[in-house]
Design a protein around this nucleic acid. Structure first.
Lengths: 236, 236
DNA sequence: GTCTATAACGAGATAGAC
DNA sequence: GTCTATCTCGTTATAGAC
């Protein structure tokens, strides 16, 4: 992130960006399974061996694209969240969810890359985890705020799930009641079900007016997590 | 579906099945994007042009695999539903949802084919629609039964969605209140979000005890649609 | 009629020598 | 970094076996 750098470093970041841009273009045309270093090089007027100075393998290029996609989605969600920073949790929840949907509709192939079918023969390394967690952390923060300010009604949880929910809370959502964590993880998966169905064409000839449909669904998702509209005077 | 057929017809169905089986194997190894008629033929000891007697094109083979997958999923869901045919709607709902998850875990590549990222350059023809609708029709039937026997509490619906919900009800769920139809379509998408997240690895290092987690989530999905446990004496 | 095999096309990927 | 020879692919035309 240094702003001052030599010409060599600048050229390197520029070429790296050009490679990733071209690779994203191939993602759209052929899909992640057919992403080929050679085709990227040809399109850039380079030779395939030159690409290996920037990405040691096709899988590393894929990993970089995945991290970029998660980061782009995370940044879109965070910026949408900031525009409603002072609002009540339910409004912040829907703002984040709508940002996720908006980003997905604007970047369908990158969405497919991170939330669609796995790429055969590729397994994502752990380096993708921090970028992948950004949206989740945002949602956790919203629910935590609601919890701390009395705007959270804990959803029911069967006894057989209590231990698992407590473990999840300790792992990545400390301070939240386990009931809310279990509900939040489920809501998170369900949010992506809604987005994926729209994006992958499952709503074709079924749901026409998708934006209000989605908005209503995510409000009900929030209710399932325990978020309720709270009058301002009740907030601390 | 004729049980009596000549040797010619029998050979034809056998070879058709062998082609599809081999193609499913390639689906698992290389993904749908790389499904190749030539590779299928090679593996079967045939020559590629001979396959055109059975499938007019590669896309038609893909379509056949997609329809088979939808039908296999639909049959699994229907058979699970039949084993609890007399039970209350909520129990039938969870039985169908668990059958969907079970089928998906047993057939991950076929699940990815029908509910994962679209195959680049391929668009499913309308012939896939009837098979694709089977699980949805099952869920509609369950909700309709609940509605007719007083076991359905209509979920809330904002005014802006009422027209859309009425259109959806008229299109594919006549007799159901529009509130329930809108909630059902959302729940359907959310169900596949839960299944897809587990299948595609998004729950790795997050949710360990997945079966009870899923069971609880689909019960809450059913509540969202308006299904509640009803005491037996209240059922007609 | 029904099927399989041969051969070929145009397009694209790939490996290796230079 | 360049070039070429050799692969793969989907698809079609054609000829012959059952």
């Amino acid at each position: 992130m240094s702003t001052v750098k030599g010409a060599r470093a600048r050229a390197r970041t520029e070429i790296t960006a050009a490679i990733k841009d071209e690779a994203r273009g191939q993602l759209a045309k052929e899909g992640a399974a057919k992403l080929s270093l050679r085709a990227v090089a040809r399109e850039l007027g380079m030779v395939s061996s030159a690409l290996y100075r920037y990405f040691p393998s096709r899988d590393d290029l894929l990993t970089a694209l995945i991290i970029d996609a998660y980061d782009s989605l995370g940044a879109a969600a965070e910026s949408a969240h900031e525009t409603v920073a002072g609002a009540e949790p339910l409004a912040r929840w829907t703002a984040v969810c709508e940002a996720v949907r908006g980003w997905a509709l604007a970047h369908p192939h990158e969405y497919a890359l991170i939330y669609g079918s796995p790429v055969p023969g590729y397994t994502a390394p752990l380096t993708t985890v921090p970028a992948a967690a950004r949206v989740g952390l945002l949602l956790i923060g919203i629910v935590r705020d609601a919890h701390e300010h009395g705007g959270l009604t804990e959803p029911p949880l069967p006894a057989e799930l209590l231990g698992e929910a407590e473990r999840m809370a300790a792992d990545f959502a400390p301070g939240l009641p386990p009931e809310a964590v279990a509900a939040l993880v489920a809501a998170w998966a369900q949010l992506y079900g809604l987005v994926g169905f729209e994006l992958f064409g499952q709503f074709n000839r079924m749901v026409e007016d998708r934006e209000p449909f989605f908005r209503h669904a995510v409000v009900r998702l929030a209710h399932g997590v325990g978020l309720r509209p709270v009058p301002p005077e009740e907030q601390a």
